[in-house]
């Protein structure tokens, strides 16, 4: 029977080497392990992120806010291919994830649609939205759309509720930007009655 030493010397294929590994005594010194998830190479992180859905990805990015590099990589992956960000359609934690990322400075275009559904959420997140916008060094288009799908008295008070957020957003555009701002709404297809309601019954 060959000794282990002799066996090693005759092994040429890696497969055999693997098979023979069980004969090797385990090393008592512990193998170096990853300090944390963030130490993974960027390529591997992007590979993992590629298997996550958009919501998972942005949720993970929000959870990774204390880990700057990880947050940034995940946000970058999220922004990949997204030229326009619709603020109202993002999950609540997405703005948290974005505002802490230095990737936010690469955002070029934002659409923010104030509706009956999205309005209250956007108003609640005013501080975060302002912080996000202050980081956007390359923002060149901001579109604010003001409308509600439903007719009625809601429209009368909606504008007063949204006012603070709308103007906070406008005032947060960095002074060095060359931004184009478009304020739309109510949509031109609205009837006179709807427009009248929108204007507070004037």
């Amino acid at each position: 029977m060959l000794s282990l030493k002799d066996q090693k010397s005759t092994i040429s294929s890696p497969r055999l080497l693997i098979n023979s590994a069980r004969f090797v005594k385990p090393n008592k010194t512990p193998q170096p392990r990853l300090a944390n998830f963030e130490d993974l190479p960027t390529e591997i992180l992007l590979l993992i992120a590629g298997h996550l859905g958009t919501e998972c990805l942005i949720a993970l990015a929000a959870a990774a806010v204390p880990y700057g590099r990880l947050n940034h990589i995940l946000v970058q992956k999220f922004l990949m291919g997204q030229h326009i960000i619709n603020l109202e359609s993002l999950p609540r934690y997405a703005i948290q994830a974005l505002k802490h990322s230095c990737g936010a400075k690469d955002l070029a275009s934002i659409v923010c649609r104030f509706t009956r559904n999205s309005g209250p959420s956007l108003v609640e997140q005013t501080q975060d939205i302002v912080a996000l916008m202050q980081n956007m060094e390359h923002l060149h288009q901001l579109q604010i759309v003001l409308h509600s799908e439903e007719a009625g008295r809601y429209k009368c008070s909606a504008l007063a509720e949204w006012k603070g957020t709308i103007f906070s957003m406008l005032n947060a555009i960095p002074g060095t930007n060359q931004c184009r701002v478009v304020v739309d709404g109510p949509p031109s297809g609205w009837s006179y009655r709807e427009r009248k309601c929108y204007r507070g019954g004037a």
Binding site: I173, T176, R180, V181, V182, D184, G200
Partner: peptide, 21 residues
């Protein structure tokens, strides 16, 4: 004194001319 970096402004809503706004 405080500057905002808006280069082009398109107003397509009467909302900006509302009282209080």
């Amino acid at each position: 004194a405080h500057s905002v970096g808006i280069k082009e402004f398109t107003i397509n809503s009467p909302a900006l001319f509302e009282e209080g706004i």
